[in-house]
């Protein structure tokens, strides 16, 4: 009997796994996975920052609805959030929205809600004495936040941000369900076409995802240690 596994299917379609129909068509495969994760990560950093700061505002008319929103998003499956974006975005924007943007917005909204919690924890981790001291030097509240608290808080948040990025890379696989041809979608396409090598194909992309995510998980741990060490001296 032949070998159980036949990884020929991977080498035959390697370019397709990496970049999809590019350059004759849109970017796909691993390239699109990274693109989706990076763009959503940058956007959700700002989204998380804004939501996190707003949730700490002392005016309850602002903080209450913001917290409610954050909790609602965190209470939903990402898949649901993406489906909602599918419906809502065209209505809100008044124009049609390509699927890849729908997914980016879904991922951004979802991840922002989680990032806001990191931002919040980071800010609350700065001793209140610093704020009091800064205010007594005559700085305004927003200046204290911008110049004193945030820069320190953000530095402590970096490892958690990197962890969120890893989650994002994994979450981009859901784009498959709305037909965006990122890595998982491309894999099912090849699987559908060949119909004989599901084991090989899914092991291959699992390993691909693993290396990508593990690299960033390790980065996050290294940063965590470095920051802890800096604080120690």
């Amino acid at each position: 009997m032949d070998a159980i596994f036949n990884f020929q299917v991977i080498t035959d379609n390697f370019t397709y796994f990496m970049i999809g129909r590019f350059p004759h068509g849109p970017l796909g495969g691993l390239g699109l996975t990274i693109y989706l994760a990076v763009v959503s990560c940058i956007l959700s950093f700002f989204g998380g920052l804004v939501l996190g700061l707003l949730s700490l505002v002392r005016n309850p008319f602002i903080s209450y609805p913001v917290n409610l929103f954050i909790n609602a998003v965190r209470g939903l499956p990402l898949l649901m959030v993406i489906f909602w974006m599918y419906f809502l975005l065209p209505a809100l924007m008044g124009r049609t929205v390509p699927e890849s943007q729908t997914v980016i917005m879904g991922l951004t909204l979802f991840t922002s809600a989680y990032m806001s919690q990191i931002v919040r924890a980071g800010i609350e981790g700065i001793p209140p004495g610093q704020t009091e001291a800064a205010i007594s030097t005559g700085l305004k509240h927003w200046q204290v936040m911008l110049y004193i608290v945030l820069p320190q808080g953000l530095r402590n948040m970096i490892p958690s941000f990197v962890n969120q990025f890893v989650s994002l890379i994994k979450d981009t696989s859901l784009a498959f369900i709305v037909g965006v041809s990122e890595l998982t979608h491309v894999a099912t396409q090849v699987n559908n076409r060949t119909m004989a090598y599901p084991t090989e194909i899914f092991i291959f992309i699992a390993v691909l995802y693993f290396f990508l995510c593990y690299a960033f998980t390790s980065l996050s741990r290294w940063l965590e240690q470095r920051l802890a060490w800096r604080k120690a001296i």
Binding site: K170, T199, A206, F210
Partner: peptide, 23 residues
């Protein structure tokens, strides 16, 4: 720990459903 935390759940679902057959 590292492997299963660092691969997407969706891929794992596909693996167990379609990919486990050959193993």
């Amino acid at each position: 720990l590292e492997f299963f935390r660092n691969t997407p759940l969706l891929v794992q679902i596909f693996f167990w459903y379609f990919g486990s057959y050959k193993i």
